[in-house]
């Protein structure tokens, strides 16, 4: 090989692969709108993206797995936590996590109510982006998601036992119940532990604080999924102003049969 030939190799291959790259880029532009649901990019979403950049969020957190590795990934956080919790959290992170226990803490960014609303709109838009199946299993801020492997879910689906189906759904994301609720005694994640919920539901029916319409424990559990504010568990990180931080849209986002399965599973937690 002469120098002339190797130069030709360099220039030719560079040009060739650059052209392929540009061709794929043009094709990607045709598809990105559908993959990212860009029609749902409202003014709030775009304003929220600006807050995300201005507050330098990406230099602690990852989003779509990109950023810094000092704080949890936020790709699905809007789906896992819901707007009520997140807006309360963003007002004062120190009320929810302790530096003594976790060794790190998110500083208070002094965000205004508008900024918080925009940021949450942006994060919910991100949570709906088609990420080609990433993360392969839910990423949690704290606690654990035991037995949520795809194999586990398949096994449950094959069994057609409502309790098994309910448990599999409980550990799936969405609805990501297990991201906030532990089923172990005394282990409090974001929401109250659900250990013994079936027995507790019975007592709640007679609680003077209870505002719902359930007559049986099973009805209580069902109601707590679709209308979480009917009974408020005491604690500043669970509710504010008479409203639970738990998302109140499961009545729409889950099918009736799915709720049946969840109730069947939760009723086994005696």
């Amino acid at each position: 090989m002469t120098k002339r030939q190797t130069r030709l190799f360099f220039l030719g291959s560079t040009l060739f692969f650059a052209l392929i790259f540009i061709g794929l880029t043009i094709d990607s532009h045709r598809q990105i709108s559908a993959l990212t649901h860009s029609d749902q990019m409202t003014a709030d979403v775009i304003a929220g993206k600006r807050v995300w950049h201005e507050k330098n969020c990406t230099n602690c957190h990852t989003l779509l797995g990109e950023g810094a590795y000092y704080a949890p990934d936020l790709t699905k956080i809007a789906e896992q936590r819901g707007a009520a919790y997140l807006s309360q959290f963003l007002k004062n992170p120190a009320a929810f996590y302790s530096e003594a226990k976790d060794r790190r803490l998110m500083p208070n960014l002094n965000l205004g109510d508008e900024q918080i609303r925009h940021l949450i709109a942006f994060l919910s838009w991100v949570s709906r982006i088609d990420t080609n199946g990433w993360p392969p299993r839910p990423l949690l801020v704290s606690g654990a998601f035991p037995g949520s492997s795809p194999a586990h879910a398949q096994q449950a689906a094959a069994s057609s036992d409502p309790v098994a189906l309910g448990e599999a759904l409980f550990r799936k994301s969405p609805p990501a119940c297990a991201a906030c609720h532990s089923t172990a005694e005394g282990v409090q994640l974001v929401g109250p532990s659900l250990a013994g919920i079936a027995a507790r539901a019975q007592q709640r029916l007679g609680d003077p604080e209870y505002r719902g319409h359930a007559k049986t424990a099973e009805e209580y559990v069902r109601e707590s999924i679709v209308a979480p504010s009917m009974f408020l568990v005491a604690g500043p990180t669970f509710s504010a102003g008479g409203r639970s931080f738990m998302p109140d849209n499961f009545g729409h986002s889950l099918q009736a049969s799915e709720i049946d399965h969840l109730v069947a599973y939760l009723m086994t937690l005696k």
């Binding site: 790259f21 990420t131 080609n132």
Partner: peptide, 21 residues
């Protein structure tokens, strides 16, 4: 030459999970 053969389309290893085709 090898750098560009691999490197240009290698950009795609950042494009697995971000919402592109």
């Amino acid at each position: 030459g090898l750098t560009f053969i691999a490197g240009i389309l290698g950009t795609a290893h950042h494009y697995y999970w971000i919402g592109v085709p």
